[in-house]
Design a protein around this nucleic acid. Structure first.
Lengths: 417, 417
DNA sequence: ATAAGTTTGTGCGAAGTACAAACAAACTGT
DNA sequence: ACAGTTTGTTTGTACTTCGCACAAACTTAT
């Protein structure tokens, strides 16, 4: 028989000479058996991350598979030193062979991490359980010479990596600015032009002979929440950062959402006030224009606050607690404005869980509770769906470094086909 | 050794007594070999959908696997009548055995579809290539008796199904209102209270002994775009519907985005104008308040248009083409308002492709081009990322019914683990 | 008319990975 | 000492993809 009148067309989103990607029209990838094995190994590791040390039998129950299957997956990783078997744990039952829990080997390789901010570099090692080691800091001229910058970052990383007893799994980089995470390129950093256009991943991979991954700062915070923070075990949640700018990122179904070449998640530049204040991106009325520190300080000045340039969420919370009505009012407006963007994310994606970072997190539990109450007032609740607003990153402030390390974990574990 | 100080906690989003889902903390599913086979069979079917008839060798090239693998997948489906082998096609090469293309069997079972609107039901059969057959229509009292409604929908569907030569794969239902698509329940339809709380999937599955799936109307439009319309072959795109209300849905990485229990994608109730117009959802400044027909008509009345109650996008396009400056101005404002919500979706998810339905689609290519130009003005373009705005559903108007049928396809093909 | 070259489809056995069943090990309670 | 229970291991089976060789079906050159 002849097949006729069969359409085969697309919406025209691909540019000229662009290679088709897996899953795009014209190219559907099947799953091979070795890929199947990789997926399952990654999921077993994920289960250990999410649930803590577990025996083979417990892992088999969690994963819905045969005990033999778990042994087959786990044994090679014990033999290669990634995992280790713990002491026998007496059973909770009447009788029964004691279980032998399995977990990550403290002697396992660590993760390299780089935090890249305009003018400043921090590097460290992070253990599989999230401990920070060999922290090294340096500064660079954001408008300076490309070669000088590369020398500084290589030296700083070398100082850190020299304190590892064995080669780490890889190096993760959290950077400000517009990042193409697929190609490992810093597309643009307005505050540090020396970085713009830098193919940093290729350069560092060649220099250190280690896998290198890069992503932008809010997404690194998110990944840090996922592996080492309040997002542990979560499949769907967002991290929201407020400061000089406003940014965010989110996990959907266990995966960091990136969009094409990492371009998704420009949450600060979604519009919440048509024809509102001019944003530094050129549009009017972006979420960032009403929910970042510049807005807060401008409003503080307009309302006659003392030292308006030093107004932060923490300061407002403190002054409100001391009875200052003006501070209470401004704090309420700020947290309400933050809530509008969270509302829009909630309406769009139903993530139900949000972790606050940066200035808004500096306001502590009081600020978080205000944001949550505003969000709850705005969202039409669905049955059995509580919205959770939590904090991370207050205190020692290494969330972004852990996040950078988490980028390595996410890419190494191959958790999703 | 003993494992100590290992955290195992979550953000607290689960309610009391809620079963943990696959992938959530405490439960990670591994992939079995029979699941692997199902995934690969689904992907081969998807490749045929997206690319039209292909030979085994061509499919092997597309899928990146061995020719033997494709034969092993395809042969059982030929034997069971889902696929059929076509006439040999002479090779484009010098020599070479002629290829035997494979495609869907016209004698294969069809798909049942139901469109459920306040007061009206439409049912039909849809072939695997999207042809509509056995269309039946009925009306019901939206405030009437639950039993009377069920009798009407069963009769209407029976009339349609009696014209099928064999049992269809299943029945898909596109419905207005708030739908819990995981449990197959219509949670609320403000304009048709008789439907509220109806466990329609269980009822119809029991009655017809066929698989039944349900989703809300904009998501059914999206799925229709994906299988039978301009979204064919696309992994990431959104469908936007404007009319009395504004709704939308989107595909991410080849999957319909649903969120928990289908609650994601309430795009019409994202806020674009803080403290703006009161919305019928109770909030102020939702996208729906500035980009649906009620806004258009109210503005037309305010501006002194003749017969403002009959203003639609199509009418404005026509009058603007005839030189009416007021119509041109209102059309520009309407398409700009539609663009703001698309902008926010683009900033959040970087989908790059949007299909317009309903009233805004009624404005044809001119309206779509205006929307596209507004979006392009607002979005900071990334390298190699064109934004596409297309139309669907104008003409015969069966997009939603094809979409309902597509819900069956999506669930039947098991395209994703 | 025959041979060389090329592509497609099939047959056969190998490889990778999960599953089922049986058994040994290690415990508790009677 | 024995029964019962759970955990971990051993052995063989099942499912699915892969690699290689070969047959079939064509075109082109001689």
């Amino acid at each position: 028989m002849k097949f006729e009148n069969q359409p085969s067309y697309s919406l025209g989103q691909r540019g000229p000479n662009k290679d088709t990607l897996a899953g795009e029209s014209g190219n559907v990838r099947l799953v091979s058996q070795s890929t199947l094995g990789e997926i399952n190994r990654g999921r077993v590791l994920q289960a250990l991350y999410d649930n803590g040390p577990k025996s083979r039998a417990e892992l088999a129950r969690l994963a819905g598979v045969n005990r033999t299957t778990i042994t087959g997956i786990v044994q090679p990783m014990i033999e290669e030193g990634l995992l280790v078997e713990g002491d026998a744990v007496p059973s909770d039952f009447k009788g029964g062979k004691p279980a032998r829990p399995i977990y990550f080997n403290p002697e396992a390789p660590m993760l390299g991490a780089v935090l890249l901010l305009p003018g400043r570099i921090q590097t460290c090692l992070v253990t599989l359980s999230g401990d920070i080691k060999a922290l090294t800091k340096a500064q660079f001229d954001p408008h300076g010479d490309r070669g000088a910058f590369l020398a500084i970052i290589k030296d700083t990383l070398s100082a850190t990596l020299s304190q590892a007893h064995q080669a780490p799994f890889g190096i993760g980089i959290a950077s400000g600015g517009m990042i193409d995470s697929d190609n490992g390129v810093i597309l643009a950093v307005n505050l540090a032009p020396v970085l713009t256009g830098l193919h940093l991943v290729d350069i560092l991979q060649a220099h250190f002979s280690l896998p290198v991954v890069i992503d932008h700062h809010p997404r690194a915070l998110l990944v840090g929440d996922r592996w080492f923070g309040p997002g542990r075990g979560q499949q769907n949640f967002a991290a929201i950062y407020t400061g000089e700018v406003l940014g965010g990122a989110f996990y959907i179904d266990g995966r960091v959402y990136r969009g094409l070449a990492g371009s998704g998640g420009e949450l600060g530049h979604t519009v919440v006030q048509i024809d509102g204040e001019l944003c530094n991106c050129g549009k009017h009325g972006c979420w960032e224009t009403v929910a970042a520190l510049p807005w807060l300080r401008r409003e503080a000045a307009r309302l006659g606050f003392a030292n308006p340039e030093s107004v932060t969420c923490a300061r407002l919370v403190k002054e409100a607690a001391e009875g200052a009505e003006a501070a209470n009012g401004l704090l309420d407006r700020y947290t309400r404005n933050v809530a509008f963007g969270i509302l829009n994310l909630q309406q769009t994606l139903s993530l139900n869980s949000y972790v606050l970072h940066g200035d808004i997190a500096g306001g502590g539990a009081d600020a978080a509770e205000r944001v949550r109450q505003h969000v709850e007032r705005l969202v039409k609740k669905r049955p059995n769906q509580e919205i959770s607003i939590t904090l991370n990153g207050i205190g020692e402030g290494h969330t972004a470094l852990r996040g950078a390390a988490g980028l390595v974990l996410s890419s190494h574990l191959k958790l999703v086909i």
